[in-house]
Computed example of a mutant assay.
Amino acid sequence: MSDTTGQYADVNGINLYYETHGTGRPLILLHGGLGSGEMFAPILPTLTERHRVILVDLQGHGRTADIDRPIDLRLMADDVAALIDHLGLDRPDVVGYSMGGGVALQVAVRHPEKVGKLVSASAHVRTDAIPAEMREQQGQVNAAAAEFMKDTPMYQTYEKVAPRPEDFPRLLDKVGEAMAHEFDYSEDVRGLRVPTMLVAGDADMAPPSHYVEAFKLLDGGLRDGGWMGEGRPKGGHALAILPGLTHYNLFGSPLFAAVTLAFLDPEPAVWAS
């Protein structure tokens, strides 16, 4: 793994923090809500064996200070697209988890010409994919919860790296507000023009059946794949449901790293005689 280089890119009116690790074909890696690039530390060495990994701290998260606009997947996707231009990257792969998976999806939807392949992990595509009680919990994410989160690893990392640690309550308000909006990205998924893999844990926030439905929007799971893969989805899409994982540990799992690399760097099938 190469030495870490943390830098800022002035794009879209935001001072976006990113780090570059490793060498090889570029891969942009996007963290989950209330997290930062640090959350991928367990799998970073695996990913950097084959890729130049660009870890981004999204708006208001990690080392990227907030600006006066809502936390919105589409706006953050435009930030990532501007970073791709800023770095002069040629169609990097974009991999995201949870909120970052939603951002990664929107990068591919809004800027398909800038993306090689897309991996969107633990990011459900419709509000109603998760149980009502979970949505109720999400509704309690606001500044008032800041005090209760002081002992969590999420807050402790934020306090350590954020340019303005006192912004944490504001971040909670904005993330809570973002989660309160109903959404349905089914048509965005159906229209994807880059090879896409949807990933989820088998006990994720949304059930595996939701990701199977989303895979069908990508022409997946509708027929036998065939001996030579001729029946696989036409766009080169894939689905991975990872055993033994939840929404809260998938991002650091070797399984997540393994399926991501298998999708991004496929090796030809070898048949034993």
Rank of each mutant, 00 (worst) to 15 (best):
L250W: 13
G139I: 06
P169M: 06
Y211F: 15
P45Y: 11
L250E: 12
F40M: 08
G176T: 08
D184G: 13
P266A: 03
Q156S: 05
G24F: 08
A240W: 07
R110Y: 02
D167V: 04
I54L: 08
M1C: 03
V199F: 08
D3W: 05
D204T: 00
M99H: 05
T48V: 10
R110Q: 14
M179C: 09
I14F: 02
T23Y: 02
S120E: 04
M39R: 06
G35E: 15
L218E: 04
H51Q: 12
W227I: 10
Y155T: 14
M154W: 09
P131S: 09
A203W: 03
A269I: 11
V161D: 06
Y8C: 07
K174G: 05
P243D: 11
L217F: 00
V53A: 04
D93C: 10
T64G: 04
A145Q: 14
L250R: 12
T196E: 00
H210T: 06
H181M: 05
P153V: 06
A108T: 00
G116F: 09
L47M: 07
K174E: 11
D265S: 13
R25A: 15
E177T: 15
V189H: 03
H21T: 00
V141C: 03
E187R: 06
Y97M: 02
E133D: 14
V53G: 04
M154F: 15
V107K: 09
T152A: 04
L47G: 09
E267D: 13
R69I: 00
E182Q: 12
G139Q: 03
D202T: 13
D10W: 01
Q156H: 08
Q140M: 15
S186L: 01
R63F: 11
R170I: 07
L250P: 12
D202A: 14
Y211M: 01
F148Q: 15
V270L: 10
G201Y: 00
R63M: 06
V119E: 05
G62E: 11
G231R: 00
L58G: 12
E159K: 15
P165V: 09
M99W: 12
R110I: 03
T5G: 02
D151L: 07
V212T: 08
M179I: 05
Y158H: 13
A238Q: 13
F251M: 10
A144S: 15
V109L: 04
V175Q: 07
E182R: 12
S209A: 15
I67W: 02
V161F: 02
R223K: 14
